[in-house]
Amino acid sequence: MCLAIPAKVCEILKNNRIIVDITGVRREADISLLEETLEIEDYVLVHTGFVISKLDKKQAKEDLKLWDELLQA
């Protein structure tokens, strides 16, 4: 029940709702607890039907660089 699952944004609906793809299954989710705006193809974490966080794509790229450094050190 406290799981938060990574999902991909597929459709932006009205009234703070979106459709996400969770490993192939489409589900509706509520985005009223998210401050950032979402676009299709964004990745988010969904917890009991609400989006709680949006993936920071820049940071995800940064992670790869950090690993490279770490792996070489």
């Binding site: 009223s32 607890l33 401050e35 974490l45 709680i52 966080s53 993936l55 920071d56 995800a60 992670d63």
Partner: peptide
Amino acid sequence: YKRYVKEEGNLAAIRA
């Protein structure tokens, strides 16, 4: 876990 966690967190959720 910076790709999902910000230092200040989710401000809308904290306000709620």
